[in-house]
Design a protein around this nucleic acid. Sequence first.
DNA 1: CACGAGACCTGTTCGC
DNA 2: TGCGAACAGGTCTCGT
Length: 273
Amino acid sequence: MPELPEVETIATNLREGRVGQPSLIGRSILKARLLWERTLAAPSPTEFYSWLPGQVFQAIRRRGKFIVFELSQYTLLVHLRMSGDLLVESDDAPIAPHHRLLIDLDGGLRLAFNDARKFGRVWLTAEPDSVLGALGPEPLDESFTAQDLHQALHARQRQLKPLLLDQSFLAGLGNIYADEALHLAKLHPLTLSNRLTPEQSERLWLSIRHVLQEGIQRNGASIDWVYRGGDYQHFFKVYQRTGNPCYNCGTPIERLVVGQRGTHFCPTCQPLH
DNA sequence: CACGAGACCTGTTCGC
DNA sequence: TGCGAACAGGTCTCGT
């Protein structure tokens, strides 16, 4: 499901609370229960169950597509992959289909990890860098400049689309926002990274930041049953618009498969040179 | 190093 | 209506 804007929205809601749902900050954990063991990437279930009770939520943030829960002594990391979601619910609510992990909290609450496709993963560790360390830069960070992007693009020779999806190159972009950013930047998804001029790199940098910021502003995109609450799907320019006219030039949007991912682009606005 | 295929999973939609 | 194929917001591993 989620890319950077959706993960950001979920993390913000858990940190700040939303209507009818309190913040998790300051809450303590009573116990945890795994309903699908493979959801837990590390440590062992035995360690997981013994480390969590008594831990208090100190901070909640996002890094790439990971949700980072800073607890008293450990860090809980959650990656939602394709279909994961995190819900705060009453601890006596019926266990919904696809719940994979329940964490009981004080105050009669429960944090539930729901994940139909079972791809999502959870880590509990004292060394979060052991999981997050390989991630590339945060695209919205002040320290990430157009020059940085240009230099990184020229350090490799790869097709732009798969490179933008590579989380060690840049953290947080997924299939939707990569397609939207490339369209806004007027770059073909198969363009080789080291062929971009400084001007093209800057356009890509601006476009990536633009689509991510707009996504966050609209609480992410909700394109099917998996994620709710976002609006950005109404503003897609190419994603899932195959055959529909480009808003710039009227040419039908085309779809091709790149790195096994559906890829949407305008052949006129995004020519392959 | 770059790339493609297969794996991990379940649910929904599409095409005949 | 029914049924299999195709597809889905992600990432890992393996072979070339």
